[in-house]
Nucleic acid binder design. Structure first.
Length: 403
RNA sequence: GCGUCGGUGGCGGAGUGGUCAAUCGCACUAGACUGUAAAUCUGGCGCCUUCGGGCUUCGUAGGUUCGAAUCCUACCCGGCGCACCA
């Protein structure tokens, strides 16, 4: 029946429905995509990756989980690594006079990325391309032709650009080129669907424009909602409010627990694949007066499980309970042996638990340093070391053994 | 190119010759309260200190002055306006 090597694609109605709805902000063109999904043809699903930041955070796992949904149905995932933009270098960055992010650095970052994405997707089934492959070869007349597909006002009216212009911030001409490059990527790989955050909408649509220019059928575009980070603002590497896929289990668990209660359900929906029925049930429980902490514990466990497995998730939960709910020390605490005549400050500085003596003095004055074995507050900034477990502030710990 | 305004701590943004390590807001951080939540309140938030004080910071480099983040000169960077222009 099937010719040799032809991929099998599921056209299961309910899977397609959830594919098109869960964690999806908008699909353009929705009806068209549905039709394509039902045709049984294997689609090429594109995701662009910026190779400058080696860490993936949970916000970016949303499109990855969506890709996983596509992959599970049998479609082809295509990663585009935006090494070209990286290589050109940011002109506003003085340091990068000789351009780049070296090839090696890009490669290194990418390997890290793929490894992380591999926690969600089956990488062996994915296609991976570096966009310098084709962008390098674009000539000026080609670029001109592409640029003509857009008008300046399209760009200027984009909210983030407009805001910067209005407030007198600099906008580099090169920034206008990004959508073209990203759009041309879609042409180069003949993308059927491109995924991205809602903030990417303009760039995603640029792909449609360019594909038309090159006489291809325009890709459908799926945007995923952005998610709030630890401080309630949008999760973003530059805010430092991220939960990273590479965070160790305890860290990850703790970060999830520190999220605002109001985000629990949203996180379940977007960052896990716990079934919608169960999520609905959690929601009801909270409304019925269940302590949100308990539901949040399940969330934290679930998320840690995705990236570290069941065992470590269990361990992290125990650790959390012990360290924070009960005020003890965590399991995997830093342990050092030191000579008996050292000062506690020096030990703690060497371990980089505290960055300066001034900070240390402040912490002491604030009553933030405790020997939790003796349940004793340290009040003298110049104390000599003693054996024991010390807690500095909320989450800094060190175990010291005096020789 | 000409003119003009501006470059201050992680960010935003005061300060325009001394009392400025620099008001304030955000972020961060400690404590109280808790569910390590959130909200709230209180404190801290350049470095060193024998806690008296010392040292290094306000685009860069010089200069004026007893004394500069504040004045002068040059340079670098950004905004705006004008000019140039396909």
């Amino acid at each position: 029946m099937f010719s040799f090597g032809k991929p099998t694609v599921s056209i299961d109605e309910s899977h397609i429905e959830s594919l098109l709805s869960r964690g999806v902000e908008e699909v353009i063109d929705g009806t068209n995509l549905k039709k394509k999904l039902k045709s049984g043809k294997q689609l090429r699903i594109k995701l662009g990756i910026d190779p400058t930041s080696p860490n993936i955070h949970i916000g970016r796992s949303i499109p990855l989980l969506k890709l996983k949904d596509f992959q599970d149905l049998g479609h082809k995932i295509v990663f585009i690594i935006g090494d070209f933009t990286g290589i050109i270098g940011d002109t506003s960055d003085k340091e990068s006079e000789r351009p780049m992010l070296s090839q090696d650095k890009v490669k290194e970052n990418m390997q890290g990325y793929i490894k992380q994405a591999g926690k969600i997707l089956d990488i062996k089934k994915c296609e991976i391309h570096y966009n310098s492959e084709w962008l390098k070869k674009i000539s000026y007349d080609e670029l001109g032709k592409q640029a003509d597909a857009f008008s300046l006002s399209d760009f200027v009216s984009r909210e983030n650009i407009k805001k910067r212009l209005d407030t007198g911030k600099r906008v580099s001409l090169r920034e206008l080129l990004y959508p073209l490059m990203q759009g041309y990527d879609s042409v180069a790989i003949k993308s059927d669907v491109e995924i991205g955050g809602t903030d990417q909408k303009f760039n995603l649509l640029a792909g449609r424009e360019l594909q038309r220019l090159y006489k291809q059928e325009p890709q459908d575009v799926m945007t995923n909602p952005l998610i709030e980070g630890l401080d309630g603002r949008k999760m973003s590497s530059s805010w430092g409010n991220t939960i990273n896929l590479l965070d160790d289990a305890n860290d990850m668990f703790g970060k999830v627990m520190s999220l605002d209660d109001s985000l629990i359900i949203k996180y379940f929906d977007l960052t896990t694949r716990v079934s919608l029925e169960i999520i609905e049930d959690y929601k009801k429980q909270i409304e019925a007066g269940e302590n949100p902490k308990n539901i949040k514990l399940k969330l934290a466990h679930e998320i840690v499980k995705i990236y570290h497995g069941e065992k470590l998730a269990d361990a992290a939960e125990k650790n959390f309970d012990k360290t924070f709910s009960k005020g003890g020390a965590p399991e995997d605490i830093v342990e050092v042996s030191v000579a008996s005549d050292s000062n506690l400050v020096d030990v703690v500085m060497v371990q980089q638990i505290v960055i300066s003596k001034s900070e240390w003095r402040r912490l002491i004055e604030e009553g933030a340093v405790n020997n939790i074995d003796l349940e004793e507050k340290i009040t003298d900034p110049n104390v000599k070391v003693s054996s024991g477990t010390f807690k500095i502030g909320k989450r800094r710990f060190i175990k010291i053994k005096v020789l």
